[in-house]
Simulated assay, not measured.
Amino acid sequence: MLQFGSDSKIATLPSGIRIAYRIFPGKSKVPLFCVHGLTGNLKNFEPIAQGLSKKGITVIVYDLRGRGNSDKPKEEYSARVHAQDLKELATILGYSKISILSHSLGAWIALRFAEKFPSFLEKAVLIDGGGELSIKRKISNLLMIQGSLARLGRRIPSKEIYLQEAKKSPLLSAWNMNIQNFLLYELESVGILSPSLIPGDNFYGPVICSIPPFVIDSELKNMGGAMRPSGIVARLFKDPKEFFKTVQENKIMPYSALRCPVLVLRALKPNFKPGDELLPSSAIEKMKEKIQNLKVYELTDKNHYESVLLEDKERDQEIFKFLKS
């Protein structure tokens, strides 16, 4: 079922997976593909995409598999799997070279894309993600995102209540229609009223977030985490060899694969408390050390979620200047 407010198209990849996408046309020969975060969808980047499109940049936003209108198979989910999907999507749409604008998990995907297809990548923008972190810091970050995971699998009486709960989140200091559209897009109706009796895009009765919990659990497992901290301990005891193998694989990021210019946008505003930012200073220093053509821009008044959900003309101008340089 297409989500609320959907105006996306569907591309069927060679793997058989169907991916939902939307193109914001421009005159640039190299398009910008926007890769959202763990519980995001293509609506995350639409406001930025609209602005860049007006300035002549062709922008493609899409739903990762497991989100929005894209397929949600009961298979493994990982940054490498998403990187392959992105390559296939870009090829189907007729592109042999792309730039990437990514957020959070999307930054991991961008790095794995660079690792697998280095010559395919023109430029990369990593927003608040892709850092090399200690195990302690990873656990801290996992605890920080628990609030955003709480909505998964929950049956909510109505979309109005769903939005009311979101508005109360301490992670957002402001509210706008872009955030509302992003949240409505991820909803599915679980009411008993026949779809033929529902006018337009309205929801009647109970709703649920369309992201299956097994999708997020698989993503986190492949990053050495779990939906709940207790799950990390359980995986450690169940298969310590496999657990430490996963941790080791994610310990060092493939920065050397980035042969293109890179812009990192770092959110400095605390999410809940000072020092809980997702890209600590230590991670930024490692990026500066290992990524040759790197520029860092700091978002002093935004946290991890606000870095893409809230409007910011200076942020958007910085991205545009980087892409045009």
Score class of each variant (00 low, 15 high):
M144P: 00
E122L: 00
I179C: 06
L126V: 04
E298I: 08
S282Y: 03
V59L: 02
T58S: 06
H304M: 03
K269W: 07
N202I: 13
E188V: 05
E76R: 13
M177C: 09
K87T: 09
S8G: 15
L149T: 03
L64G: 07
L32I: 13
K286C: 00
A166P: 06
K221H: 11
S8K: 14
K159P: 08
P14H: 05
K251W: 13
L278R: 10
G231L: 11
Y21M: 06
K159M: 13
V81D: 04
A90L: 14
G191Q: 04
A166R: 05
V215M: 02
E165F: 12
K159R: 15
M287G: 01
M223Y: 08
T58N: 01
V125P: 04
F24L: 04
P274E: 02
V59P: 03
P157M: 05
G40L: 01
K116R: 15
K138P: 06
L309P: 01
K302D: 08
P195L: 10
R65Y: 11
I23H: 00
S6W: 05
G131Q: 08
R18M: 06
S173R: 15
M177P: 07
D128M: 03
Q50M: 08
S189N: 09
S325K: 10
S70P: 03
P157G: 10
L310Y: 00
R266K: 03
E277K: 05
K288H: 02
D85K: 02
L13Q: 14
L142Q: 14
P31N: 10
E122F: 12
F33P: 08
E289A: 11
L309I: 14
L163M: 06
S78N: 08
L279E: 09
I127L: 06
E314S: 05
S189F: 00
S148Q: 13
N41D: 06
S8V: 14
F24T: 01
S325I: 01
T39S: 13
A267R: 12
S102V: 13
L32T: 00
I98V: 14
R65E: 10
K72E: 02
L184T: 12
E115Q: 11
A49Y: 10
F24H: 01
I17Q: 03
N176I: 07
D128F: 04
S140R: 12
S210Q: 13
K321F: 10
I92W: 15
L89M: 15
G153K: 01
G129R: 10
P195M: 03
S102K: 13
E165H: 12
F117M: 08
L93T: 04
L279W: 08
E186A: 12
D71A: 07
L142M: 04
L197R: 15
E306V: 05
A267I: 08
D316A: 08
